[in-house]
Design a protein around this nucleic acid. Sequence first.
DNA 1: ACTCAATGTTGTACTGTACAACCATTCGCG
DNA 2: CGCGAATGGTTGTACAGTACAACATTGAGT
Lengths: 147, 147
Amino acid sequence: MAENEPGPGGSIEIIQREMTAFARRARASAARMHPELSLVSFTLLSHLEDRGGCRATDLAAYYMLDKSTISRQVGALEKAGLVERRLEPGDHRVQVLHLTERGTGLLQRATDSRRVAFRERLAGWSEPDLERFAEYLLRYNAGAPEG
Amino acid sequence: MAENEPGPGGSIEIIQREMTAFARRARASAARMHPELSLVSFTLLSHLEDRGGCRATDLAAYYMLDKSTISRQVGALEKAGLVERRLEPGDHRVQVLHLTERGTGLLQRATDSRRVAFRERLAGWSEPDLERFAEYLLRYNAGAPEG
DNA sequence: ACTCAATGTTGTACTGTACAACCATTCGCG
DNA sequence: CGCGAATGGTTGTACAGTACAACATTGAGT
């Protein structure tokens, strides 16, 4: 009660609800689109591609996951031949993770089929609307407290 | 680099990436905000409040979850005293689920603290931008293939 | 009455995750 | 130098969330 404001509260409420609704479905949706690459794996590989390789610790920080979780995920990805570990020459504690060719290829295919789905979903949108929506999302995520 | 792409592809790519990034963090984020109410529980309770009660099957369809998953989730929520089951008078197969007072209260508190977080995140935004962003999200989710 | 569909529960297995304990390496400093 | 703290990562353990398959119960149509 009391939040019947037609002003700022209203939009924020809607944004909250709709972002949550999307998040809630994302995993199942991703799983249906790509049985071979879970949402987690997909995002980890994406980050590796984005950065051109990084450390496990960086992944953990970026995705707010425990280092043990990353360790196991990376282990699985390595076993699947999608990433490789390279020892940092100057520091033998760290392993720099890189996509393998196979990883790059799989990521590419996943990204493509996801893009098709998004494109379909956004089919009726005008170009200015798409640009503004993209801009809003960037701005929203840039404000993430987690980095 | 990257965003200098002209045309529809660029924006769609960004939307895809940013929506995914958000989804990826939502769970951990929700967990940190509300250790007592997971993202799943929160969304289930929200739906119940929204609809003023519904069947387990409806929840399963809406969230693309298996009925067994819903069954267990609802079981836990009932055990926690957050929802109650009412037998449909005319059909003893179905149980209509309703929030209890306790469930309503907990949901309210969770929603409030989430709203605070969202509000903070959106602090620098102009009112027209908020409205447009909300509108875009509604429009995007309305196009969900899953209903 | 018999069969079939709808609703939900239970058995089982697997993924993703956190936390704590641990190992290995490096760094800071007396 | 040498030791303790910090950093990066792995392993043990436990638990939540999820799916799939098998099942029980109830209602509907013939």
